[in-house]
Amino acid sequence: MKCRFAALGALLFLNFASSAFALDKTAEDLMNAGHYKRARAIAQQRLQKNANDADALYILARVSLAQDRLDQAQSYSERAIEIAPNMSEAHRVLGESLGLKAIKLNLVTGLAIARRGKKEGELALQLDPRSIDAAEFLASYYNAAPAVAGGGHDKAEHMVETIMQLNPGRSYLARATGAEEKKDVAGEEQWLLKAAQVDPKNYEVQDRLAHLYIGSDRHDLGRAAKYARAALALDAGRSGSYAVLAAIYAEQNRWADLDAMLSLAERADGDDLVPYFEAGKALVATGKDNARAERYLKKYLAQEAEGGQPHQGHAHWQLGLLMLREGKKEVALAELQTSVSLLPDFRPAADDLKRARAS
């Protein structure tokens, strides 16, 4: 619950602060739709006018979090909180960035940071009890963290029930995320289908189903295409479902359809070239057109990755695998080494680099 102030002056200050640091709805909508680069440009313009713009700092924190730049996300969110201590969203982003950092550290250091991340998430929900984002973060944290770090499935279930009271569709999405984290593909599918029944006009639900069915565990190209098209019917300006269709066409050798889809996707959202990445990745897996795969992956590397999309290290990894297939060992080693340098915690690239060196 939000703190109560006995003094009228304190209450007036709180009202002033909440209006002065009201979220930029345009930037918030852009980030919710996956357009982090566009939101960042808004924040940078605002900071040029006012270096102490808490909302702009929060936007940059959230963009950094989406791009897995955890130190930046922590720094921006801490600065936002210094200016606007009651900004729930900034506390939530700080909690998420700390939680993700903790995973990459040793037990002792990571435990302290994880506990702080949990505390920030709980404060975010206390400041705004209707924040579904904060409740979703806490549900994920409680599911993943050991008891010594404040985790627990009972706590996670309570958070999901809290979300259910606010938005049933989002509660099913939260359950799907929990199942995904446990590698429970059947459970993830079950909850996503429930979410689609409750909220058929939710882009994220349709897009996640499309990606579920393009994956190796539930590989069903017909269903993947069905849900990808349903997502695009809801929002043709987002790249994720174009990427699913591009991967399908690449796997099926539908070159004319693939070229047309990639062109359409780039016109719809030139800031996010993930359709090229997914098409290239599919071609690396099938080995059907190495030159095309190389061209697509290099296209993806030609600009900064959009928030929430595959890190450039993943593209270097795929290029390394492709170069190994073509017998270009030195080039392959360089690509795999770049991937490992960019993603030191990504085990597949490290394993492939080790095998390539030994071959």
Rank of each mutant, 00 (worst) to 15 (best):
E82Q: 15
D24A: 11
D235C: 11
E188K: 15
D29R: 12
V63R: 11
F16Y: 14
E266N: 06
N202W: 07
S97I: 04
A233K: 14
E122Y: 01
M323T: 04
D235L: 11
A279F: 08
R208A: 07
A39V: 01
A156Q: 12
G215N: 01
M87N: 02
L12N: 07
K226A: 13
Q303S: 14
D184H: 05
C3W: 14
V274P: 00
A256Y: 00
A247H: 02
A27Y: 08
V148P: 00
G215Q: 01
W255M: 04
G280H: 03
I42N: 03
L166S: 06
Q309K: 15
E122F: 04
L353I: 08
A233Q: 14
L343H: 09
R292L: 13
D29P: 00
G169L: 13
G34N: 07
L47Q: 05
Q48Y: 01
R254D: 01
F277Q: 06
N106H: 10
A33P: 00
E120N: 11
S339L: 12
Y227A: 02
P129I: 05
E28T: 10
D55S: 01
I81C: 08
L301I: 10
G187A: 07
A349F: 15
A332T: 12
G152V: 10
R295S: 15
E122D: 05
G327V: 12
N32A: 10
E78H: 04
